[in-house]
């Protein structure tokens, strides 16, 4: 009897040691250089050594370009290399911020920058609000014991796997004059709607498609948060006869708050950075109705005959400052809430 139970364990141990052998060899190879490094930098310095590859990558592709971009924003002309560009001081910022009335883009010297900014705020307001709301509702539903739960989780997550260009093209084909949706409308006796000619419809679909494409990701974050809440709390509330609404407001929502904050911050940052989906879907039109700030930067820097890298850089710095302020505000609100 003893023999029977020990035999599979022995086989398992052998399999583990065979599978682990290459790993052991790699670690043995690394041991010598790493022990040398540790002697040099000390145990406290080792985390930095492990972070180094990532820091180098981050530095080359994020930090250095950030500084170069900042420097570009103080230059003018069309030269590509910073050393060849003419220093113009704060001219680009003064040009961007030259407005008679900030509430009316038409009165601004660079009206398209301000239109882009206003459109971005409108988009972010609706997109983030509904994205968080729908993600929360979906996560709450998928957290329950429903039939086909795994299937539905996959269904909601699937659009996240698609490229933004593919997402936009799929919806464009649906929404075109001769697209599927208009064919359906005609089949039920309605008139065709030219969705991309109306500013309101174009903005609606830009928000809708963006929510459709990204909701699965945020649902997943919230679902993970919901599953981390201890079931004992719900059981205790049930035993006390607490209503479902009260359970949601008093247990679920407060304990989900850290995840919600992550979702809001991420959605906000991604919302302000929106470009590819909407660019392919509406092209920024009609007129400038769905032209957002990143598209303005792209147009200014790349699509005009005079590629105004300085102005585009200044606009991107302004965008960066706005994002930074928004994030700080959110963190401040959260801290105040936690402390209060």
């Amino acid at each position: 009897m003893t023999k029977n139970t020990d035999q599979p364990a022995a086989v398992k141990n052998t399999a583990v040691s065979i599978a682990g052998w290459p790993v052991q060899q790699v670690f043995r190879l690394l041991e010598y250089p790493f022990s040398k490094i540790q002697r040099g930098v000390g145990v406290q310095g080792m985390p930095w050594i492990f972070l180094l590859p990532n820091l180098i990558f981050f530095g080359i592709f994020v930090i250095i370009p950030l500084f170069i971009n900042f420097a570009f924003s103080f230059t003018g002309g069309t030269e590509l290399f910073l050393s060849n560009r003419v220093y113009t001081g704060t001219e680009q910022y003064r040009f961007l911020l030259d407005c008679k009335t900030f509430g009316d883009p038409i009165t601004c010297r660079e009206d398209r920058f301000w239109k882009g900014l206003y459109n971005t705020f409108i988009f972010v307001f609706f997109q983030v609000s509904f994205l968080v709301l729908f993600s929360l509702i979906t996560a709450l539903i998928l957290n329950r014991e429903i039939r086909g739960r795994g299937f539905f989780r996959a269904v909601f997550f699937f659009p996240v796997l698609l490229s933004p260009v593919v997402v936009a093209l799929i919806w464009k084909w649906i929404l075109l004059r001769d697209g599927i949706l208009n064919a359906f409308l005609v089949s039920i006796g309605m008139d065709k709607i030219l969705f991309f000619v109306s500013p309101e419809w174009a903005m609606f679909w830009a928000v809708f498609v963006s929510i459709w494409a990204h909701m699965g990701f945020y649902t997943l974050i919230l679902l993970a948060g919901l599953q981390a809440i201890q079931p004992d709390l719900y059981e205790a509330a049930e035993m006390d006869g607490t209503s479902k609404e009260r359970v949601f407001w008093r247990i679920t929502l407060p304990l989900l708050w850290p995840n919600l904050l992550v979702v809001v911050v991420l959605a906000l940052i991604k919302g302000v950075q929106v470009f590819d989906e909407v660019f392919v879907l509406t092209g920024g039109g009609p007129g400038t109705a769905t032209q957002f700030i990143v598209q303005y930067i792209y147009n200014t820097g790349f699509t005009e005959q005079v590629q105004n890298f300085g102005l585009a850089s200044a606009a991107s710095i302004v965008l960066g400052v706005i994002l930074f302020v928004l994030t700080m505000l959110q963190l401040a609100v959260t801290r105040a809430r936690d402390n209060g």
Partner: peptide, 10 residues
């Protein structure tokens, strides 16, 4: 308007 109006810029 679908042709000219449906995109922005140039």
């Amino acid at each position: 308007k679908e042709l000219w109006g449906s995109v922005s810029g140039s």
